[in-house]
């Protein structure tokens, strides 16, 4: 007697193909992503953990870390506050030039960091009208802290606004309207209705911009002038050490920033999980 097999269309990949593809994926990620990372850590500790710690404690290193932290501590909150204001305005009014604002927000992501630095030199450098005027009044922007800050603000500008825009786009508008009709002011509406909706997205985008602010290299390199122990941020200090052939020290400094990358990644995963759980509850 013939066996009748139940009909099932073949939409699964053959097992051998599946294994091959998985092996390929693991190999690609290992070679392209994991190996460089491992190489930094191995080189940083190549002279032993005590040397590693001494290198991290050097005064130039500490100045660089402090400067980077200072820049991030100013740039990130500024971008978050103005980003929330902008997105709140964009989602609560009907404005015609939305596309234009979106393009404006996308620009800092798509412009080469070097060009960003150059833009600020063209505006505020010694030879520019505005920069010259400021210099006459004793304010140095380029090759000083304000220039570093402006470059950092520019490159981290879109993170919060871009993340929040789709989140604040009116899924909970009815609740807001109800609150308004009941007499709640905008601040209470924001705190009680909007903020709980956007909190994970906000946290996530703040972490992303923090990481970018601390790790930005190109834009900051152009406006910094690389004065060691003064205008060298942590990434610039890595470059300075690298150029001096102090490879162990450069890699040790790099592990600090690499750690930042790992933290960002972890927070991203956690934030996404939380977001998923929150949306499942709704």
């Amino acid at each position: 007697m013939k066996k009748v097999r139940p009909f099932s269309p073949n939409t699964a990949d053959a097992p051998w193909l599946k294994s091959c593809l998985i092996a390929f994926a693991v190999l690609v990620v290992l070679v392209i992503v994991v190996l460089p990372f491992a190489s930094v850590i191995v080189q940083a500790f190549s002279e032993g953990p005590s040397i590693y710690l001494t290198l991290l404690r050097s005064s130039d290193m500490q100045v660089a870390v402090l400067l980077s932290l200072k820049l991030a501590a100013i740039a990130v909150p500024l971008n978050a506050i103005f980003g929330i204001l902008l997105v709140w305005g964009m989602t609560h009014t009907q404005l015609p030039c939305r596309r234009f604002i979106m393009a404006l927000l996308d620009l800092p992501f798509s412009v080469s960091p070097v060009v960003v630095g150059l833009l600020f030199i063209m505006l505020l450098g010694k030879n520019a009208p505005l920069g010259g005027w400021l210099e006459e009044h004793g304010v140095q922007v380029i090759f000083a802290f304000p220039g570093l800050l402006l470059a950092t603000i520019f490159v981290t500008l879109p993170f919060v606004a871009r993340e929040l825009l789709p989140l604040m786009e009116g899924q909970y508008r009815q609740e807001e309207e109800a609150a308004r009709l009941l007499g709640a002011g905008w601040w209470r509406i924001f705190l009680k209705i909007t903020l709980p909706e956007i909190k994970w997205g906000l946290l996530f985008s703040i972490i992303l911009s923090l990481a970018r602010a601390l790790g930005e290299y190109g834009a900051v390199a152009v406006v910094s002038g690389n004065i060691r122990g003064k205008t060298n941020t942590l990434p610039l200090h890595i470059e300075a050490l690298f150029n001096d052939y102090e490879l162990t020290a450069a890699n040790a400094a790099a592990t600090l920033l690499a750690l930042l990358g790992v933290i960002t990644l972890t927070v991203r995963i956690v934030a996404e999980l939380k977001k998923k759980r929150d949306s499942n509850e709704h």
């Binding site: 990372f37 790790g215 290299y217 990434p235 920033l257 990358g261």
Partner: peptide, 14 residues
């Protein structure tokens, strides 16, 4: 999430 300068010296080392 890895800063570009870190990627730079990492690739250089590798």
């Amino acid at each position: 999430s890895l800063p570009t300068a870190v990627a730079g010296i990492a690739l250089c080392g590798l």
